[in-house]
Simulated assay, not measured.
Amino acid sequence: MKMKIINILLVLLMTFSFAVNAHGDKNKDKGLFKGIDTPAAKVVLAFHQALETGNKELARAQLADDVTIYEGGRVERSADEYAHHHMLSDMKYLASMKSETLEHQVTILGNTAISASRSHTKGTNKGKERDYQSMETMVLEKQNGDWKIKHIHWSH
């Protein structure tokens, strides 16, 4: 319970600092990419690459078994649930889109890491033009020496 409270506080702290940076910092180009060479960040990047290239096994391997994924008012409560349902539609969608990361910060505190990013996505999907910015927050946990994604929150 104590670790969950700490994780929630960390997410709130990262979200607040992310929001401050996203709303007109004088040095807007400085510090938008931090910690992206860390092992935890490499897991996030591998997950994104796997989704974009349709590599279901690699994407699934980056997730903790008990991952929770929040998107569009819905929740998936395990890696298997995501892999058997929404992952395939995410892969199809991303195959038709072009996405550019605008900022990405990864902070590691012990066995917990928080990844916060903002992206610009555009393209055509199912005959509809899309052009929007999205936000992503991930919480990662070091399990048996490997970083795994425990929580994802996507919004746009």
Rank of each mutant, 00 (worst) to 15 (best):
I114D: 03
T137H: 09
N125E: 15
M138A: 11
G35P: 09
R130K: 14
N55C: 08
Q49R: 05
G73Q: 05
V67T: 04
K126E: 15
T112M: 07
H151E: 11
K150S: 15
L9K: 05
E103D: 10
S17L: 13
T68Q: 11
G54D: 01
D66F: 11
A113G: 07
D80T: 14
H23R: 14
S17K: 10
H86L: 15
E129H: 14
A116G: 04
F18K: 00
S89N: 10
K4A: 15
Q105D: 13
E57L: 01
H156E: 08
K42H: 02
T15A: 13
Y132V: 02
A79N: 10
S117T: 03
Q133N: 15
S117H: 02
I149V: 07
K148T: 12
I149E: 01
L10C: 10
A59N: 01
K92M: 13
E71V: 04
T53E: 03
K128G: 03
K122Q: 12
S115Q: 03
H48E: 04
I6F: 13
L12P: 02
A19T: 09
H156F: 07
S117P: 01
N111E: 13
D90P: 01
E57P: 00
I149M: 07
K148M: 08
L63Q: 03
A61S: 15
G123Q: 05
T121K: 01
D90Q: 06
H151Q: 15
G31V: 08
K122I: 05
K150E: 06
T107H: 08
F33R: 02
A79H: 03
T121R: 01
E57S: 04
A59R: 00
Y70R: 08
L140C: 06
K28E: 12
T53W: 00
E141V: 11
N27Y: 11
L45F: 00
I69L: 05
T112D: 08
K4F: 04
F33K: 00
Q143W: 02
K98Q: 12
H86Y: 13
P39I: 08
A79F: 02
M135L: 10
K4R: 13
G127F: 14
K2I: 11
G110R: 06
H23N: 14
N21I: 15
E136H: 01
Q49E: 07
M91I: 13
W154C: 01
R130H: 09
I8P: 03
I114M: 06
D37Q: 10
K150G: 06
M138D: 06
H151K: 13
G54M: 06
M97C: 03
G72C: 10
A95K: 08
R60K: 10
H86P: 01
W147Q: 12
N27S: 15
Q105G: 14
D29Y: 11
D146I: 10
I149A: 01
K34S: 10
K122N: 13
K148D: 10
G35E: 07
Q133V: 02
E81H: 11
L88Y: 05
H120F: 01
T124E: 14
L32V: 12
A59Y: 00
E76S: 08
T101R: 05
I108H: 08
I108D: 03
Q105Y: 03
W147P: 14
Y82Q: 12
S89Y: 07
M135G: 05
E76D: 09
Q62F: 01
K122R: 15
K34E: 13
L10W: 09
R60I: 00
A64F: 04
E71G: 05
G145P: 09
K98A: 02
A59F: 00
S155A: 11
